[in-house]
Computed example of a mutant assay.
Amino acid sequence: MSSVTQLANILDKIPSSIEILPDESYEFIQQAGSPDAHQAATPFLFIEGNLGVPKKALYRAYVEALVIFASAKKGTFGEGVYSAQAVHTLVASSVVILLANPGHLTALNVRKRLVQRRVLDSKRELELTAALLTSRNCSNQSILWHHRQWLLHRIYGLFDGTMQSSEAQNTLSQIRTSPDGEISSHVLVSREVIDKELSIASRACEIYSRNYFAWTHRHFCMELVMHSLNSIMDPTYLEEMAKLVSDEVIAIRLWIERHISDSSAVHYLVILIERLSAAGLIGILPFAFPHPENRLLPNVNDIAQTGAKDFFSSMSHAMSLLRSYPDHESLWHYFRAISHLADAKGDDIQAFTHSFIYPWACRSLSPSGFDSMRITIYAYRFLVWQAFQVGTSI
Rank of each mutant, 00 (worst) to 15 (best):
L238W: 06
E239Q: 14
I260L: 07
D247R: 07
H259R: 10
V249N: 10
H267Q: 12
R258E: 09
D262Y: 02
S231E: 10
H267P: 01
V225E: 02
A242F: 02
E240H: 01
E248R: 04
L244T: 12
E223L: 04
Y237N: 03
T236A: 11
R253F: 01
A251V: 00
S263D: 15
L244G: 06
A242S: 15
I252S: 02
S246L: 05
E248D: 15
D234V: 07
R253P: 00
V225D: 01
M241S: 05
P235K: 05
A242K: 11
T236N: 12
I256L: 08
D247H: 07
V245R: 03
V245D: 09
A265D: 14
L224N: 13
R258S: 12
H227M: 04
M226E: 05
E257S: 13
T236Q: 14
S228L: 01
R258C: 04
D262G: 01
M241D: 01
I252Q: 07
E239S: 11
E223R: 09
S264H: 11
E240R: 02
S263F: 13
I252M: 13
S246E: 12
T236K: 10
M226Y: 03
M233W: 00
I256M: 10
A251D: 14
L254Q: 14
H267I: 13
V245G: 06
L224Q: 12
E240P: 02
V245C: 13
N230H: 01
K243I: 10
A242C: 07
S263T: 11
A242R: 15
